[in-house]
């Protein structure tokens, strides 16, 4: 390994020379030339460079190298070597297989300046990550879903405790099968789905002990597939609604980006103060007044206090109507994608 803590030897393995040059130069600049970069365009060439010693990190394109086998080979022969995997077409299967083979980081090939900076930050974290007892710090390396999958594939028996400020729940895995999960008052598969979909948090892996009961009976791969589908559904809700933006269990999961598409502000009496990209301000003002009146009538005797806002999630984004005594504001946002 490199002697100087701030200087790192980094090897990029990819058959696309132009991409290597462009990305390599970017990383060199971002690291203030602390990274000494080398490039290889074949697995054999990469091995020759690694054998010469001193390499801290290998970043390889899993699509062109022999993928998981090459990662396993590197991980087996050079256990202290940090391995990051990139791909132009990320999938959950590729990610899980790469992590299981020994990669410390999996990311989509960056194609923008922002993407390169984001990947650079994650690679820096990986370079400075030191293994420790237990699973403290594992969140930087793999996601909860991947960890459960690895435990199941390895036929391990373990307990996963999940936290966010306080205890959220617990997952029991026995001989590679998910047999019990609890999340607050909820048990079984629904609890498992809930735990995997929660944004933000940490988890710890503990030695196995018998659960108070068995509440999950289906094979682990079916349960994980359902949980993944459910998580995507929940993510879609969050993207549309934008009420919750968390880092997720997986470090580096960026928040969706919302782009304002329309803005209208008027007085409480409906006189327009300001509009931006509002095609029909008069119709909008009428709509806002109607909704504000509706809010006043919605639950007249429920002592709910003042009406603050109405949020509407639509397939393409969301709209927010905020009503005050002296002012009504309407804004519409479009979801512009979820950067990786």
């Amino acid at each position: 390994m490199s002697d100087k803590s701030n200087h790192h030897q980094v090897l990029f393995v990819d058959d696309n020379r132009d991409y290597l040059e462009a990305v390599g130069e970017s990383f060199r600049l971002l690291s203030a030339e602390d990274w000494q970069l080398q490039a290889a365009n074949s697995a054999n060439q990469a091995l020759q460079i690694i054998k010469s010693g001193g390499m801290d990190l290998v970043v390889l394109d899993v699509d062109f190298t022999d993928g998981d086998q090459f990662i396993s080979l590197l991980h087996g022969c050079y256990p202290k070597l940090k391995i990051a995997v990139m791909t132009a077409e990320p999938t959950n299967e590729k990610r899980a297989a790469s992590i299981a083979a020994g990669a410390g980081l999996f990311f989509e090939k960056p194609v923008s300046a922002e993407g390169i900076q984001s990947v650079f930050r994650q690679l820096c974290k990986l370079l400075h990550w030191e293994p420790s007892e237990g699973f403290q710090g594992v969140l930087r390396r793999i996601g909860l879903l991947d960890l459960v999958k690895i435990e199941c594939i390895s036929r391990n028996s373990s307990i996963l405790d999940l936290y966010r400020q306080h205890s959220l729940g617990r997952i029991y895995i026995e001989d590679g099968q998910i047999i019990h999960a609890v999340c607050g008052e909820i048990f079984g598969e629904r609890a498992f789905q809930r735990l995997l979909a929660i944004s933000g948090g940490t988890f710890e892996l503990h030695d196995y002990e018998q659960p108070p009961e068995r509440t999950i009976h289906r094979p682990w791969d079916l349960i994980l597939a359902d949980a993944l589908r459910f998580r995507e559904l929940a993510k879609g809700q969050k993207v549309a609604g934008g009420t919750t933006v968390g880092s997720g269990w997986e470090d580096g999961a960026d928040a969706p980006v919302a782009r304002a598409e329309e803005l209208l502000i008027c007085t409480g009496r409906g006189e327009k103060i300001y509009d931006w990209q509002c095609a029909h301000p008069a119709a909008r003002v009428a709509m806002l007044q109607a909704i504000a009146q509706q809010a006043a009538q919605i639950v007249p005797d429920w002592q709910l206090g003042h009406f603050d806002r109405l949020e509407i999630a639509v397939p393409t984004g969301r709209a927010v109507l905020q009503a005050r005594a002296d002012r009504i504001m309407f804004a519409r946002f479009a979801q512009t994608g979820v950067p990786t």
């Binding site: 609604g241 809010a295 639950v299 009406f307 603050d308 509407i312």
Partner: peptide, 12 residues
């Protein structure tokens, strides 16, 4: 406004 959901937010 074909909605996925509506949330009316009151003080309480």
């Amino acid at each position: 406004f074909l909605p996925r959901w509506f949330t009316w937010q009151f003080e309480h």
